[in-house]
Design a protein around this nucleic acid. Structure first.
Length: 493
RNA sequence: GGGCCGCUAGCUCAACUGGCAGAGCAGCUGACUCUUAAUCAGCAGGUUACAGGUUCGACUCCUGUGCGGCUCACCA
């Protein structure tokens, strides 16, 4: 009946009671530490070099190992900067501390004070003169050597993953640095960071399924945003010439190694720029972020090494598809002819896909997996891109690019369509395609069109999938490895 | 949603063709004053994800369910 876990938990609770009876507060309010563990190690090096006088330090962290050796004991504690060894020499403490030492467990959080020394084997160590319990742990931690490898537990109890697997912590530190480097890059270029609504009466700017929610007081359904685009362009109309937003977007679609229902997107809009300018900015931004965070523009990704150094290769969509699939889609201008051509090459083709979707399928199936080094695929058919502006003299083609690296789409950008009349036509066209589906959900954003009618300057827009960019820079094969709490099904009782 | 794979002690993993569920770590007791995957002696700990079925006998075979992973579909 009593499992090991029950035993352990009971033992820990007994220890907790024992400590309380001895007047020890197992959960005190604060602790004054003088150094992080990394700073303490660095201080020792300087002391040894004679650069500074020996001094006492106080450090705090979670106990990750205890090695009891009779009269003296070693322990390791770790904080967010790293870990350091502790040496307790039992005779040095009064009875209360000796008892406390006995009842310490792996997992407890403690604060210690003492001088720094290096052991025979060269390990930087705090020789503890005084210590305090800061939080008693009542649960056993994962095993110290193999860490925690069960994927499900790693995601559901990410805190355990972070405690047990230091490299996981590292990936999320990099994520944070990437985001901060992006902000720095854009701020330095005069972009204004803004925040726009997550809750929207209609979800526009992309064609994904939105999440639905309900506002009680207003008694109306609202949607979680699927893109940032339409609001940011309103701000361009309003006279903010360079804006960006870094934020969560939500798509009610399938979950995969490259898709999480909520994910982080960067969108930026720059007045008076076109997609060529945006291309130059993106390759500059990504390479600079990589240099800043990794110290190099080269990133290891699985079997490959990706070099983000500009300029990235530029390839027209038509050439890209022709090269990798052998099909020149320009020769098959309708869904029927293109579909027939694809079927004749043994490509499975969904009957009700329109022409744009077929082209997109060719791109995803044949081209995208081949694009390991950063590549701009440019000049998309207008029917795939309702918010992008046509190329001068080429009505069927728009000034748009998608950036690929590591076989993933990481960015999408275009010269924004700012002709309100044409924009309305494109929306209407799109709505026709959608007819038969959930009618109410797909409405035209009239206020956005109204904004365009006031006049939007020529604008270059950009969307970057931050999670995927972080995957590339941290060499992670799954988006769940760069999202702290990825979406999982609820576990039944 | 489809296909394939997985789920055994708190953690990491064994268990042959269907024949007594086992080890290391963690835990407990004891020894040990420079250990670092400490060591040594002993102890304890299991609804083999869940529900059925086949069988003298099921961790093992079959059916279903749950959760996870990969993949396909979906995702302009």
């Amino acid at each position: 009946m009593t499992s090991r876990l029950e035993n352990i938990k009971q033992q820990r609770r007994e220890k907790l009671e024992r400590l309380r009876n001895q007047g020890v507060d197992p959960y005190p309010h604060r602790y004054q530490r003088s150094h992080t563990t990394a700073e303490a190690r660095e201080l020792l090096t300087r002391e040894e070099a004679g650069d500074t006088q020996a001094e006492e330090v106080s450090v705090a962290g979670r106990i990750s190992a205890i090695r009891r050796m009779g009269k003296s004991s070693f322990a390791d504690i770790s904080d967010s900067s790293g870990k350091i060894q502790l040496l307790f020499q039992g005779s040095g403490f009064d009875e209360k501390l000796r008892n406390l030492l006995k009842d310490l467990d792996i997992g407890d959080v403690i604060g210690v004070r003492g001088g720094l020394l290096r052991t025979k084997s060269g390990e930087p160590t705090v020789q503890v003169s005084d210590f305090t319990l800061l939080a008693k742990s009542l649960q056993p931690l994962p095993e110290k050597w193999h860490g925690l490898s069960d994927t499900e537990t790693r995601y559901r109890q990410r805190y355990l993953d972070l405690i047990a697997n230091p490299e996981v912590k590292q990936a999320f530190k990099i994520r944070s640095q990437v985001i901060s480097a992006i902000r720095q890059f854009l701020n330095e270029r005069g972009f204004l960071e803004v925040e726009t609504p997550v809750l929207q009466p209609s979800a526009g700017g992309a064609l994904a399924q939105p999440f639905t929610t309900h506002h009680q007081a207003l008694d109306r359904d609202l949607y979680l945003r699927i893109a940032l685009e339409l609001h940011l362009k309103r701000l361009i109309v309003g006279g903010f010439d360079k804006v960006y937003e870094l934020g969560r977007t939500f798509r009610n679609e399938g979950i995969s190694t490259q898709h999480n229902p909520e994910f982080t997107m960067l969108e930026s809009y720059e007045a008076y720029a076109d997609y060529q300018d945006v291309m130059a900015m993106l390759e500059e931004m990504v390479s600079q972020v990589s240099r800043q965070v990794l110290g190099t523009t080269e990133a290891r990704f699985g079997e490959d090494t990706i070099d983000f150094k500009p300029p990235w290769q530029r390839l027209s969509l038509r050439d890209a598809v022709r090269e990798h699939s052998g099909i020149d889609f320009a020769k098959y201008p309708t869904a029927e002819t293109l579909g027939t051509e694809m079927r004749s090459r043994n490509i499975e083709v969904d009957q009700d896909k329109n022409w744009a979707k077929l082209v997109d399928e060719l791109l995803k199936t044949f081209v995208r997996p081949k694009l390991i080094q950063p590549t701009f695929v440019i000049d998309y058919p207008v029917s795939m891109s309702p918010l992008a502006k046509s190329k001068p003299g080429e009505e069927r083609t728009v000034e748009r690019f998608q950036a690929f690296a590591g076989g993933m789409e990481i960015a999408n950008a275009y010269t924004e369509l700012n002709d309100p009349i044409e924009q309305r036509e494109r929306f209407t066209e799109q709505l026709k395609e959608r007819r038969g589906e959930d009618e109410e959900r797909w409405t035209i954003d009239e206020d956005f069109l109204l904004a365009l009618e006031y006049g939007m300057p020529p604008t270059g827009g950009l969307g970057v999938g931050i999670d995927r960019l972080v995957m590339l820079l941290t060499n992670q094969p799954s988006i769940r490895e760069v999202i702290l709490f990825p979406q999982l099904k609820e576990k039944g009782e």
